[in-house]
Simulated scan of single mutants.
Amino acid sequence: MKKTFSIILFSFLFISCQQTITPADIAKLNGYWEIEKVVFDKGADKVYGMNENFDFFKINGTRGTRTKVMAQLDGTFLTTDTFENVSVRFTDKGTFLDYKTDYAKWSEELISISDEKFVVKNEQNKEYYYKKARPVNLLGDGKETK
């Protein structure tokens, strides 16, 4: 009986600690993000050091785009015309980012979000931990980066 009570209490605490994501939180996705680490479904993880590729989100309300961009030595980002359409979907099971291209559709669950970090989980139960990208000016030319 004690073990059952402990399991129920632990489950309740775990569920109550999950972040409730509101429509106002979605605006925090806007900007440049880099993958910090990936946690696989078996618990192993892969930590990323310095990234040269970043994700740029531009979302207005519940619709927007995600574009892969590449960091440049002067602190700017090089972009292409390739992007993914993103729709934000709120359900009783969570908040989801639905992606669509001409070739594929997929979803990721938005687990948590703050001004500096966010976490998503894909359909293979991989969790992607992102951190806000900061421009780095390696040229040292004194110019401010955007």
Rank of each mutant, 00 (worst) to 15 (best):
V136S: 13
Y129I: 04
N60G: 06
F57E: 00
L29P: 00
P23R: 06
K46H: 11
N137M: 04
A27H: 05
V47D: 08
E123G: 04
W106V: 06
G49A: 09
K126N: 14
G61Q: 14
G75A: 09
T80F: 02
K132D: 09
K93M: 04
F12G: 15
K46G: 01
T91L: 05
V86Q: 00
K46R: 11
E127K: 13
F90H: 10
Y48T: 02
Q18C: 06
I35P: 01
D92N: 15
I7K: 15
Y129R: 03
A71V: 05
Y103N: 15
D25I: 08
I59E: 07
R89S: 06
M50G: 09
P23W: 12
V136H: 04
S112F: 05
N125Y: 12
G61M: 09
D41H: 08
K146M: 10
G61L: 10
G75S: 06
S112L: 03
S87I: 04
I111P: 01
N85Y: 07
K58L: 11
F10M: 12
L13C: 14
D25A: 05
Q18W: 05
Y99K: 06
F83D: 07
K100Q: 13
M1Q: 13
I15T: 14
D92Q: 13
E52Y: 14
N125F: 11
L97E: 04
P23T: 08
D81T: 13
K93L: 06
E127G: 00
D81Q: 15
D115E: 15
D98R: 01
K46A: 04
V69R: 01
S6P: 00
L29E: 01
V47W: 01
C17V: 09
N137C: 08
Y128G: 01
S107C: 04
V88D: 04
V119P: 00
M50V: 12
G142I: 12
K146P: 04
R134N: 07
D45S: 10
A104N: 12
M70E: 11
F54Q: 05
Y32P: 00
K3G: 06
T101A: 07
K46M: 09
S112T: 11
K93D: 09
R63K: 15
T95K: 01
V119C: 00
Y129K: 05
L73E: 14
G61E: 15
G64P: 05
G140M: 13
Q124T: 11
L97N: 01
V136R: 07
K121A: 03
S16V: 02
K117I: 06
T79K: 13
G140H: 13
G61N: 15
G75E: 03
M70K: 14
S114H: 11
S107R: 09
N125A: 08
W33I: 08
D55R: 05
N60R: 10
V38N: 02
N85S: 10
S6R: 14
F77A: 11
N30A: 06
T65C: 02
K105V: 12
P135E: 05
F96E: 02
M70P: 00
S112M: 09
E144W: 07
T101N: 11
A71T: 08
I35E: 10
V120R: 00
F96W: 12
L138E: 13
G94Q: 07
I8F: 08
L13D: 02
L78K: 15
D41C: 07
S87H: 03
G64H: 01
F10K: 09
S107E: 10
M1H: 12
F12N: 10
